[in-house]
Design a protein around this nucleic acid. Structure first.
Lengths: 202, 202
DNA sequence: GACAACAAACATACATGTATGTATGTTTAT
DNA sequence: ATAAACATACATACATGTATGTTTGTTGTC
């Protein structure tokens, strides 16, 4: 049964792909390893070879989601822009559309924005994942700091509160959209609603 | 073991109180009826007397949360206000502070804003609960319609998009706060951040 | 008012299915 | 020959739903 390292990695990713879909659909607690195995066309034995338990699958999926996301924002920040608030506005639209267009991202976002998935054995990851999110919040603050530097925002504005505000809004859109995709079409409305939101900073 | 109707109702509410706390803490799927019974100081037999199954507890808790909430908004709408947008702003602050100050509401909100609780046997309630939320959204639109009537908002503004915007923001605040109460203090910041958000409509 | 019957409101016992983790077996790349 | 990468078998715990037992408020009858 020994496979090449390449094939083993494929199996590992197939398991993760199956898991994220089932986790999004059924919740982590209501998804059994048997179900994941069936969807991935492997047995539980194979899952246990690759992952210690469901928790480790959960954490691997989180890593897969947030690593590229944080990187994307950091790279954006490294590029100069004559108006950092417009830059942030565009980034927000981009984040929404990326998620909308990539089912894996969408499923992962569904899993990790759902508080009750952080229960039972998953609760050990709560603080760790929160800390990663706090890092993203700091990245958003940087856009506001840069806007102050370029005189596009008043010096007395509270960058942290504004960054927090952006996070809340983004979170609200994402959570609501994922809960009810038919209720609000992101492809057609993302730009409009983000643009409306950013009016408060002008 | 027969009790007075009054006492039986007390038992029923004690069960619901215990359930909402455990659901918020552990998620619905990870909370057993045994745990609820222990917390309520009754046995599973008593729970089964009052409720058919966990689903029925779930739905009863939802009713307990949303009924008074919808009523509160409707009553606010019935009161005239010289500026309906300010009225809505105040309502948003009020909703946040009410939730912050009432642990039962907070727990219930935690349960019902967490998508993955709508899995397994609870998934049958998804559409029904979504429909109730859509009603709230319509109530928010009414504030914007009234603002147009009173010339406090441009006639060409899209009331539904703006109402949606408010819902997203409120949802984002609630979800984020419930996930991480230490990350953002609602008592001190609710008014500030809602006020900042409403600047976009002025 | 006393008492018996009934059933509501519980508590306890029983039966069953499911999910997990671990042990063991099999295949095959190196 | 060895061990990685699986598949299968075994052992156990837990949660649910149902059946049955117990307590006691209410009502009707005398």
């Amino acid at each position: 049964m020994r496979r090449t390292k390449e094939d083993a990695l494929k199996t590992r990713n197939t398991i993760l792909d199956a898991a994220v879909e089932l986790f999004a659909e059924k919740g982590v607690a209501n998804t059994s390893l048997e179900q994941i195995g069936k969807k991935a066309k492997v047995t539980r034995g194979a899952i246990y070879w690759h992952f210690q338990n469901k928790s480790e699958i959960f954490d691997a999926l989180h890593e897969r989601l947030y690593q590229p996301l944080a990187q994307m924002i950091m790279q954006d920040l490294e590029q100069g822009h004559h108006n950092p608030l417009e830059q942030l506005e565009n980034m927000c639209v981009q984040l929404l559309l990326d998620m909308e267009r990539d089912p894996k991202k969408r499923h992962a976002m569904t899993v990790f924005t759902s508080q009750s998935n952080y229960s039972g054995n998953m609760s050990t990851f709560r603080d760790q994942h929160l800390a990663k999110k706090a890092e993203s919040l700091k990245l958003f603050s940087k856009y506001f700091e840069k806007a102050k530097d370029e005189k596009k925002l008043s010096d007395v504005a509270d960058s942290d509160l504004l960054a927090q505000s952006v996070c809340f809004f983004m979170k609200g859109i994402i959570v609501e959209h994922l809960n009810n995709p038919d209720g609000f079409d992101l492809e057609t409305n993302a730009h409009k609603i983000i643009n409306q939101f950013f009016k408060q900073f002008k």
